[in-house]
């Protein structure tokens, strides 16, 4: 028996919005410690890694490890039927071919149940090595989304350049060029408003705008985003998911001319 109950059901709705444009389907690996999902987009340019710890749920039970292959378009349709203040429970029998979503209104007056067929997915799992990154940049997630959106007007790529002075985002195309520099902030009232740059070595890498913009669908999950970069390795874009876990997007760089 697998059962995971989340009083703050809106978090699950936001997680779905954050992955459904990038992935058509994905396996949810449910284990005693929590739920993991790792999947590449169709083009294998990016990878999504989602981690929801058991401690973050209001009730969590997983007697045996189960892998639930889900069509994310279908799952998204179902989660759209949940109100933002609904309590969401996911449950499945040990060797079931369906998963059930239960939505309870806060006053328990309305209870909706949706059963969805599971899929057998044969997805390639990649081993993500532990990496010490040269540059770790924390910035407000809304600011990052704004920068990606604004620079998308200029070209297909965004160059992210991190030095000890701060971080620079640039794009170039037919209409001209754009450069946005963010300096490390001094003291701020709220920690989430800060721009913090932790740099060992300066790094400059080029990434696809299209994917960066898809990652920013996770913005409602967290006021802050963390970018980790090292030369010639994928960028990591991480959003915390409340007290439950995190979503990490890995994006392979564009290399050469």
């Amino acid at each position: 028996m697998f059962e995971a109950r989340l009083v703050q059901g809106s978090l699950l709705k936001k997680v779905m919005e954050a992955i459904k444009d990038l992935l058509n389907e994905a396996s949810f690996d449910c284990a005693h410690s929590g739920i993991l999902l790792q999947a590449m987009d169709n083009s294998h340019v990016s990878l999504v890694s989602l981690n929801l710890r058991k401690e973050g749920f209001d009730k969590y039970r997983c007697d045996r490890n189960i892998v639930m292959g889900m069509n994310l378009t279908s799952m998204s349709k179902i989660l759209k039927c949940a109100s933002n203040d609904d309590i969401i429970t996911m449950k499945a029998q040990d060797s079931a071919d369906t998963v059930t979503f239960v939505f309870e209104s806060p006053n328990q007056e309305k209870v909706s149940e949706y059963e969805m067929k599971l899929m057998n997915l044969d997805q390639d799992q990649l081993g993500i090595p532990e990496t010490e990154y040269c540059c770790i940049i924390k910035l407000p997630s809304g600011e990052f989304a704004r920068i990606c959106r604004d620079l998308s007007q200029f070209g297909e790529s965004i160059v992210i350049s991190c030095t000890k002075e701060g971080v620079k985002f640039s794009a170039a195309g037919d209409i001209g060029t754009a450069n946005i520099k963010l300096a490390q902030t001094g003291t701020v009232d709220k920690e989430e408003d800060a721009v913090i740059v932790d740099m060992q070595e300066p790094v400059t890498l080029t990434f696809s705008c299209k994917y960066l913009n898809m990652f920013t669908k996770a913005t409602p999950l967290s006021p802050q985003v963390c970018l980790s970069m090292s030369p010639d390795v994928p960028l990591v874009v991480e959003y915390k998911i409340g007290e439950i876990g995190h979503i990490r997007y890995y994006l392979a760089p564009r290399i050469g001319d």
Binding site: M40, S43, H44, V45, S46, L47, D124, Q125, L126, G127, I128, P129, G155, E156, S157, T206, S208, V233, P234, Y250, A252, P253, R254, I255, G256, D257
Partner: peptide
Amino acid sequence: QGTQMRMESFFGAA
């Protein structure tokens, strides 16, 4: 604007 690399170039099979 460069060659788009793929994830397999960096991360091997688990």
